[in-house]
Structure formats: C-alpha cells, structure tokens
Amino acid sequence: MSVLVLVLAVSAACCLGFGFVLQQNAAQRAPLNDFLSFRLLVDLVKVPRWLAGIALMVAGMALGAAALGQGELSLVEPLLATNLLFALALSRRQTRQPLGRQGWAGLLLLAGGVTAFIVA
C-alpha cells in the first residue's frame, strides 16, 4: 500500500464529505417555493457556501481519480466511502448536536468495516 494512494484517497473522501455538507446546508436555506424548479439552481449559484461545496466535490472527484490511477480499486474505494465520516463530523460541528449512541455505533461500524475490508 502506497502512502501516496492513502493520502490521495483520504483527501478525496474529506473533500467529498465536506462538499456534501456544504451543498446540503446551502440548499436547506433556499426558499421552499423554488423547490424542484430551475430557479433553485439560479438561487444556489449565488450562494458562496454552495459554490464551495461544488468546488470541494470536484476536487474530491479529481483526487479520487488520481488515487484510483495510482492504487488498487479494492483499497481506494473503501477509503472513499469514509467520506461519510467526514460529512458526519462537519455536520455535527455545524449543528452542534450530540452524536448519540446510534451515531457513534454507525461511525464505529463504518470505520471498522472499512478497516476489516482493507486488511482482508
């Protein structure tokens, strides 16, 4: 396992997770009457948080592609799945809500599953 592949894949997961949260946060604040209309996209393009989310998603996809180009699919894809951990961390920080028992259990199951898959 190359350190470069590990860094690229985890960086990609971080960018993807943070990008998801920023986009969702910006869309959540959009006017409800724009739901499922082209106007929603026009409104979101004016929101810096949404644009930052798009930029992070693009960077995450590029880093993920670079990781896949350098490493094996069986290593990179499980690491990319950890974007959920990064998304959860940022989301909880923004909302200041406690994670709770179920949240911690899900976090541990995901991290343990990815670790077990990579080790196997």
Rank of each mutant, 00 (worst) to 15 (best):
L16D: 07
R29A: 13
S74C: 07
L85W: 01
M57F: 08
V3Q: 07
F86E: 04
P48L: 03
T115V: 02
G19P: 12
A105D: 00
D43H: 14
L63S: 01
L73P: 07
L85C: 02
L32W: 12
A62F: 11
I54P: 01
A105V: 00
L108P: 11
Q28N: 13
V119Q: 12
P78K: 04
N33F: 09
L85S: 01
R93D: 13
V119R: 13
L110W: 07
L56W: 06
S74I: 01
A87W: 09
L73V: 10
N33Y: 10
G100L: 03
A62I: 14
I118D: 10
L36Y: 15
A9R: 02
D34I: 08
V119C: 11
K46D: 04
A9M: 02
L73N: 08
V21N: 02
Q23S: 15
L16G: 08
V47C: 02
W50S: 15
Q97R: 13
L79I: 00
G69F: 06
R49L: 13
A65C: 12
A30C: 13
V42R: 14
V42M: 12
A87H: 07
A116Y: 12
V119D: 10
A116L: 10
A9C: 02
A105G: 06
A81Y: 00
G69M: 06
L8V: 03
E72P: 09
I54F: 03
R29Q: 15
P31E: 06
L73I: 02
V119M: 10
G100A: 09
T82A: 11
R29Y: 00
A120Y: 12
I118N: 10
V119Y: 08
L75N: 06
V5C: 05
Q24F: 01
S74T: 00
R29I: 14
A27V: 12
P78E: 03
A59Q: 12
L32E: 14
R96A: 15
G113Q: 06
A65D: 04
A55F: 07
